[in-house]
Simulated assay, not measured.
Amino acid sequence: MSAPGRTASLALLLVAEIGAMSLWFVSAAILPELTAEAALAPWRAALLSSAVQIGFVAGALTLAVHGTADRYDPRRVFALSAALAGAATVLFVIAPIGGWAQVGLRAATGFCLAGVYPVGMKIAVGWTVRRRGLVVGLLVAALTLGSAAPHGLALIGGPDWRVTAGIAASLSLFSAALILLSRLGPHHATAPRFDPAALKLAWRIRGVRLAIAGYLCHMWELYAYWAWIAVALAASFQAAGAEDPLTLARLGAFAAIALGGLACAPAGALADRFGKARIAGVCLAVGALSAGACAASFGGPPALTLTLAILWGIFVIPDSAQFSALVADAAPAERAGSLMTFQTALGFLLTAGTIQAAPMAAAAFGWPVTLALFGLGPLLGVEAMRRLHALRRLG
């Protein structure tokens, strides 16, 4: 059998990304059932989600400093990481609910997923330079669909949260085998040696620095939205007197996140044509406006709030691909994997705080204020992208 070509290899990568990343928001998707079964305190419930972010940061920093994705075959790194993440989720199912073992297993899952998402980007950018915005956009679309999957799986699992988590674990194990069937692209570059000093390029190269600044502003909003939009919508629908607010909120969250994923590919194509920084700036601006609009509509007509949340979901993610592509464009090819992984680590370190703080802010100030706060990051990110677009035009 001949080795798969570019299209087949990218397709295998995208499907594997969806399957492995379905583990990310499992705990958030099954939170109502977990809380009902074990009466979890709000801070403990939030910790199950923020632990994934913390674990991811630790894993991403480890891989970035070591240069793993640049020194070894990234397909094998991806496969091992996805398999270990799936195994950690299987153990999560049998661990005491809400205990430190479950928290630790969620952190371990996040650590392993650092070998999936950033490493997947390393594989993707190896296939093209001219169409890099589109290719990385497709990868982020897969990430987004995977992140939305737990909300859909929760509808399949119903009241038994263990079924939902078990399906997600199975998908990740399947992805580990699938990625090994792909091959690497012609632009894949390998670093000759271990050099943690290469991470200094994140500051020394202005294009990389501005891309990372915009990414951090974007991450302030993104994962807080993904983790808590279903909870916020349920509270809004309940305040509005909607029938079965939880089911409606879950469907709304799944639709919002999934549609955002589908928007990544066309946004990537537009970025390749009109400029990655420009398209990222547009997405950030719409995200900031949507956050304010959702806050203003909270408790109002469910159809209006749901529409605004879905609009927000469509624009909250397509820019993520462009930040990664911008770093890859500005960085030396042999260091792109480490710098993208480092960028991702910084972003997810920020999200660990926003995910943990969001429900506490909602308890103290209400969800409308909390949703409005989500919009502050992207508002600042617009300026970073304006500067980066001007820099790239001069270059």
Rank of each mutant, 00 (worst) to 15 (best):
S27D: 07
L308D: 01
P118R: 00
S236Q: 08
F25Q: 03
G337W: 06
L289I: 14
V129Q: 14
A20G: 08
R44W: 00
F174E: 01
F274Y: 15
L91R: 06
H151Q: 11
G241Q: 09
R6G: 00
L284F: 12
A45G: 15
R386H: 13
A265L: 05
G55V: 11
G375Y: 06
G395I: 03
P42W: 07
T62L: 11
W161E: 01
G166W: 09
L180R: 08
G337N: 05
T109R: 02
A235Y: 05
A265D: 04
W312S: 01
A101R: 11
G98T: 10
L391G: 14
L346Q: 07
A20W: 03
E17I: 11
A165T: 04
V103S: 03
G99P: 14
L201N: 11
F342I: 13
T190K: 12
L289P: 05
W127F: 15
A384T: 04
C294T: 13
A197F: 00
A60G: 03
M121V: 15
A198D: 07
L373A: 15
P378I: 01
L216T: 03
G268N: 09
L289Q: 06
R206H: 10
A154F: 00
Q238W: 01
Y223L: 04
A46C: 06
S175Y: 07
L139K: 05
V103R: 02
L171G: 00
I123H: 06
P301E: 11
W226C: 02
L184Q: 10
T68F: 10
A20M: 06
L155M: 14
G268L: 02
A69F: 06
Y72M: 09
G299K: 10
I314Y: 01
P332C: 11
V15A: 13
S170F: 04
A295W: 07
A177D: 02
A39V: 11
I279F: 06
R106N: 06
A58Q: 02
A8P: 04
L246I: 14
S147D: 08
L143E: 11
F56Q: 04
L134C: 01
A239C: 00
S182E: 06
G99S: 13
R335T: 09
L34Y: 08
L155H: 08
A124W: 02
L210G: 10
V57S: 14
G126D: 12
V116C: 08
L233D: 01
P96C: 13
I229S: 10
G241A: 10
L380V: 11
F323M: 13
M219Q: 11
C283P: 02
W220H: 07
F298D: 09
A60W: 00
G377V: 07
M121W: 00
F254S: 05
A328G: 02
A235W: 05
C112G: 06
F237K: 10
W203I: 00
L339A: 03
V52F: 14
A328I: 08
A108L: 14
F78K: 10
T68L: 14
I123S: 07
L31A: 14
Q343H: 05
M121E: 00
I310V: 15
A124T: 12
A330T: 04
D319L: 07
P368T: 08
S236Y: 08
M360P: 00
R183D: 04
T305I: 03
A256D: 12
A271N: 03
S22Y: 00
F237I: 05
R393V: 13
